[in-house]
Amino acid sequence: MDKDSLIYVAGHKGLVGSAIKRQLLKLGYNNLVYRKSSELDLRDANAVNQFFNEERIDYVFLAAAKVGGIVANNEYPADFIRDNLLIQSNVIDAACRYNVKKLLFLGSTCIYPKYAPQPMKEEYLLTGALEPTNEPYAIAKIAGIKMCESYNRQYGTKFISVMPTNLYGPNDNFDLETSHVLPALMRKFHEAKVNKKREVEIWGTGSPRREFLYSDDLADACVYLMNIYEESAIVNIGVGEDISIKDLALKIKEVVGFEGELVFNTDKPDGTPRKLVDVTKLTGLGWKASTLLDEGLRKAYNWYLKNVEVKNLNV
C-alpha cells in the first residue's frame, strides 16, 4: 500500500477496526475512509455499492461484523448468521465490482472444528463438526473465506483472509450479556472490587484453555500481511500460547486488585475444550506478536477505567 492509497476500514469503531485504524495512522497512512453504522448500513447492498462507487477505494480492511460471546451466540443465532453473511457478501462483492486493489477479510478461529487437533493448523478447516454454541457465526465466517477464494479464482481479485485468535484491548465489548470471556471477567472483578463483594462467579469449570492476542498486535499483523501476502489460503494470527480460564481469571483478579474468592458455576457451558492456533505459517512470513499477556491485561484495564468506568460514573 502506498501512503496516499485510499483505505477503507470497515468496522472502525470496534475492537479490531479501531486497532487497525490506529496502526495505519501510526505508520503514516493518512488517506483513510470510514463510516459509522448509522451512516452506512453494510447489510444494505444498494448503500454499500453507492459508497464504493462514490469513494473509489484502493484497499479494504473488512473488520465489520456482528460479534459476541457464548450468551449472545446462543440467544441470537439468526442475527449472527444473517448479519454477518450480509455484511461480508455486500462488501466483498462491491470491492470486486469497483476494482479494489486488495481486501483483507477478518475471520475467526471458531471456524475450526470443536475437537480439532491442537494447535489448530490452517488446513484443519472443514475437517469436523463445529462448536454448537457459535456454529451460525462460524458458518458465516467460513462463507466469507470461501467467497474471497472464489472471487480470486473467478475474477482475479486479491482478497486475503486471516483468522485471529481470541482478542482483547481498547474498544472491547464489556457488556456482561454479549461480551467474550476476558472483558467479561475484567468487568466482573472490577465491579466486585468496587462493591466490596466477597466472591466472583465464573462460568464453567475453568479448565478450558484459550489463547489471547492484544488488538494492537493483530492490527500490526493485518497491515503487515496486507503489504506482503497475496495467496488465497487463510493465515492464522495468534501468539502460539494458551492459558486456562482459571489462570486467566487469577491474572485479571491480580491486575484489577480484587481480593475475594473465585466460584466456578459448573452448570454453565465450558464451550470448546481448547483453542490454540498454530502460527508457524505467520512466523514463517516474518511476523510475531510482541505484547505479553500480563502487559496487555494492564493496558486493557487502564483503558476500561478511563473509558467504560468513567462513562458509568457519569450516567
Rank of each mutant, 00 (worst) to 15 (best):
S290M: 05
E259A: 14
E211K: 01
S244E: 08
L213E: 08
V279N: 06
A289P: 02
K299F: 15
V239H: 01
A300C: 14
L248Y: 08
K253P: 11
N265G: 05
G271L: 05
I234M: 10
K253N: 08
G260N: 07
G286A: 01
D216T: 05
W287I: 10
A249N: 08
I237G: 03
G260T: 10
T283N: 01
K268Q: 12
S215A: 14
P269H: 08
A289G: 05
K281G: 06
T266S: 07
I252C: 10
G240H: 02
G240A: 07
L293A: 09
V256D: 06
E241T: 10
K246P: 06
T280R: 01
S290Y: 03
E241W: 00
R298D: 15
A249F: 11
A289N: 02
K288H: 02
A289H: 07
V279W: 01
L225Q: 00
F258E: 07
R298L: 15
L248T: 14
I243Q: 05
D267A: 10
K281N: 09
I237T: 04
D278V: 11
G257S: 05
L285F: 04
M226G: 02
I228M: 08
E231S: 15
G296F: 13
L248M: 13
A300I: 13
I252G: 07
L293C: 04
L282A: 03
N265K: 10
I237N: 02
T266F: 00
G284S: 02
V263Q: 07
I228Q: 04
K268C: 12
L225V: 00
F212S: 06
R210S: 09
V223Q: 01
L250R: 14
Y301P: 06
A233E: 15
V279Q: 02
I228R: 02
A249V: 12
L297C: 04
G238R: 03
K253S: 14
A233G: 13
K246N: 15
K251A: 12
E259F: 12
Y224H: 03
G286L: 00
E254N: 14
M226T: 04
D270F: 10
G286W: 01
L297I: 08
L262T: 08
A219E: 01
Y224E: 04
I243K: 02
K268T: 10
V263C: 05
I252F: 06
L218G: 01
T291Q: 06
A300T: 15
D220W: 00
F258C: 09
V235W: 09
D294I: 09
E231L: 12
K253R: 14
